[in-house]
Amino acid sequence: MIFKEKLSIYLQIAERISDEILAGAYSPGSRVPSVREYAVMIEVNLNTVMRSYDTLQSWGILEMKRGLGYFVADNAVQTILARRREAFISTQASEFFETARTLGVTPDELADMYKTFIRQK
């Protein structure tokens, strides 16, 4: 079953910036591009990017310092990982488990597969 509901652009941008923070493009405490700079860079509406930044602020990933701009929160990485872990467990994991159950894969088989995977890394 394919059920794709794409997130609104502003949420996609928020995720993208989170990816960039995780990848180290913006380190904790450093300044991220201004709303306008980012909007021009990715060719997106200013208000949309504004919304993304506001959302990231409400999630505790970005901090706004008056007159200076937006900065990556000190514990941004942890916050992002925590959010994603929760998202993974509530959506992707349950989808995966549903598929596994449908195909008749047992919990033990899943555990073994995961252990093998970890060992290889």
Partner: peptide, 19 residues
């Protein structure tokens, strides 16, 4: 507005006929 449209409507792709 685009914002309202995204809030009020859901755009999905599905192969389930019941949807």
């Amino acid at each position: 507005s685009v914002l309202e449209a995204g809030r009020v409507l859901s755009f999905v792709e599905s192969d389930k006929e019941t949807d």
